[in-house]
Computed example of a mutant assay.
Amino acid sequence: MSADVLSTEAFFWRIERRDGVTLGFTSHDRDLAHDGLRLRAAPGIRPAALRLTADITGDDAQMDGALTHDAISAGDLEAGRFDGAGVMVGTIDWQTGTTKELYYGTIGETEAVVDGFAAQLRSVKAALDYDPVPRTSPGCRARFCAPGCNLSPSRFTHDLPVTAIEHQANAVTFSGIAPADFLFGELRWLEGAAVGLRHSIIGEDGGDLVLDGPIPAGVEPGTRALLREGCDRTIATCASRFGNVLNFRGEPFLPGNDLVAGYPSRS
């Protein structure tokens, strides 16, 4: 490749967050456009590492960038808005607009550094590390209301305003629900400063739902949230609460390791 071609190419990043926001960035010194998306030159992101392989081993990548109030802020990183976001990395010719896609993956760990951030990227090849062969387990292996479980998610999803918030306990209160039904479920904020952010419900305390992380700033009583009920994945709950034993994806009645490893005895 000639020096003239190299001098007209820049890196670009397309980031698709789980809350529906799509952002574009480029290493060029001015804004560009690709596929209807504005690629911002400021704050700009630079590739700290990018290793591509032709085999099934995972590709390594990392990106570094600056923090700004309107694109990537410390508050958004802390709130988890970029966790698990889809990332596409490529090169773009800033004269012709020709692009070449190099890398697909998701954002893994992010950390704040001096005047900016650093993010590790997980290649789509990471999916090859997943073992598709199911293992026996006493609990159900299916995700609640997902394929395998086959229950309708609309039956167990509720659009409700939060009535009380306890920030120190990471707990929220909703009226008209049975809190125990939402243990191991999830919450997604539908409006306000935290719109699109998700939490797992990890506990129930005196009628309050305990979340897996801090409640985002700007969430006030009256903020609407989408609540999904949860399941403890036991055969008893599947039978008594949901009547869904036919779809139970587990083996609750297999003998345990103690019985298999035990010695025979005379009766």
Rank of each mutant, 00 (worst) to 15 (best):
P47Q: 06
D83F: 08
V245W: 05
Y263V: 13
A48M: 00
A33N: 10
P147R: 06
F184W: 12
H199G: 00
I201L: 12
T57D: 11
T26H: 08
F144T: 09
Y104H: 15
R224D: 14
G58V: 12
R233N: 07
A164S: 04
S267T: 13
D70Q: 03
F253A: 03
G203E: 13
I56Y: 06
W94E: 01
V89P: 00
R14V: 06
S152V: 12
V124T: 15
L254M: 05
D60W: 07
Y104V: 11
R46Q: 09
N170S: 15
G196I: 02
R233E: 01
E204W: 02
S154V: 15
R40M: 13
Q95I: 14
E191D: 03
T98D: 13
A180E: 15
V260Y: 07
F156C: 01
L246S: 09
T234G: 11
I165M: 00
T98R: 15
V87Q: 02
R17P: 03
F156S: 02
A79V: 04
P179A: 04
D129M: 10
M1D: 02
P132I: 08
T68I: 12
V260S: 02
T173K: 13
R14Y: 06
G196L: 03
L151E: 02
G148F: 07
R51V: 08
D83G: 02
G36D: 05
D59N: 14
I72T: 09
I15V: 15
N257H: 06
T96L: 03
G222F: 06
D55M: 05
I92L: 06
V195E: 15
E251H: 02
A33K: 03
A112K: 06
T110D: 01
F174N: 00
E220H: 00
R249K: 06
S200F: 08
V114L: 07
P153I: 01
R38M: 02
L160T: 10
T99S: 10
L102K: 10
S200V: 11
A61D: 02
D212G: 04
R30P: 04
L197T: 13
W13F: 12
A180F: 10
L197E: 10
D212F: 04
G36S: 09
G108R: 02
A178L: 11
D64I: 14
D205L: 15
T96D: 01
V162M: 14
A118S: 15
E251W: 01
G116W: 08
S175K: 14
P43I: 05
A119V: 03
A41K: 05
D115E: 14
R249A: 10
A146F: 07
M1E: 10
F242I: 05
A54C: 08
A79K: 12
N247D: 15
S200Y: 08
L32R: 07
P138H: 03
V162L: 15
L246K: 04
S200K: 12
A180L: 05
D31E: 10
A178D: 11
A194Q: 08
